[in-house]
């Protein structure tokens, strides 16, 4: 782990065509994206444009109709624990406690480690997300926000090569969402796993990520523009909210979503945001 891999994830002209009763529907067309190791990118776009579809293809839970995906130099086929996923609802198994839910994956991935070490692992991650006293609770006894914390702990505990987040905070109210964003950043600071996250929340995208990938409207969605977020890490919400660049970035994303998302990008390379602040 000396030098970060400049090509952790390469998506090369991904297509997704669903067979529908009305004939084949091209949802995603020629989707290109390259991510560095340790990068945090968000995918933003209107609802139904195909964000989840792209993420599910990367996760291996949905077949790639056409195109290539290369993860850490290897073609990845099918789902696996090397890609941690957090969905909008954390899909914990309701018959297991928070501890057991995380342990299920830990047992699988660290099968050579001793029992003690595995227990420590689970306890560590659940404590870091703030659930030290709720480890033995069942999902039904936890609030929505707490369940999502378990989901995040489970994903990080497996130390995947990539983390895929599909609107992980979409069902939470805005204040709980802010809290969880900090929980996520806190963990991510300790272990910079390459992360691709889907969101429709502009503030969330700016606060969390290094790059915001804007998708054009579906069908036949592709990458519209890419915006670099220049803020230093570790990020402090208060400082960012007072930074004048923050509102410019916010404005840029909102304008894109409201006015330009239906436009096709010119063929060739993906345009970067034409802003001075991208280089700042």
């Amino acid at each position: 782990m000396s030098l970060p891999n400049p090509k952790m994830l390469e998506l090369d002209r991904l297509w997704k065509i669903y067979d529908t009763p009305k004939g084949p529907a091209t949802i995603v067309k020629d989707f290109n994206l390259r991510m560095k190791e340790g990068e945090f990118a968000t995918l933003i776009g209107h609802s139904g444009c195909g964000k989840s579809t792209v993420l599910m293809m990367v996760a291996g839970l949905s077949d790639i109709t056409r195109g290539n995906m290369i993860l850490a130099g290897r073609e990845a086929v099918g789902p696996g624990p090397d890609r941690g996923i957090v969905f909008q609802s954390p899909c914990l198994l309701p018959w297991m406690t928070a501890f057991e839910n995380v342990m299920l994956g830990v047992e699988q991935v660290y099968y050579t480690a001793s029992k003690d070490e595995r227990r420590q692992m689970v306890e560590y991650y659940l404590s870091v997300v703030g659930l030290a006293d709720a480890m033995q609770k069942y999902p039904s006894e936890l609030s929505q926000g707490m369940r999502q914390r378990v989901g995040i702990a489970r994903a990080f505990a497996l130390q995947p090569k990539m983390l895929l987040l599909d609107e992980p905070f979409g069902m939470l109210d805005s204040l709980t969402r802010y809290e969880l964003q900090d929980v996520l950043l806190n963990l991510w600071r300790k272990n910079r796993i390459t992360t691709l996250m889907v969101t429709h929340d502009v503030d969330e995208a700016i606060y969390l990520s290094d790059r915001v990938v804007m998708m054009t409207d579906g069908p036949e969605a592709e990458v519209g523009e890419i915006l670099h977020i220049p803020f230093e890490r570790p990020r402090v919400r208060k400082e960012i909210m007072e930074d004048p660049r923050y509102y410019e970035l916010r404005e840029h994303l909102i304008t894109y979503l409201n006015e330009r998302s239906h436009l096709r990008p010119s063929r060739g390379e993906t345009p970067n945001a034409p802003l001075s602040l991208a280089a700042a």
Binding site: P81, D82, V109, Y110, T112, A113, E117, R118, Q120, M121, E123, Y124, S127, V128, L158, Q159, P160
Partner: peptide
Amino acid sequence: LTLPDILP
């Protein structure tokens, strides 16, 4: 807390 330094 102890975080065991194991890799997946």
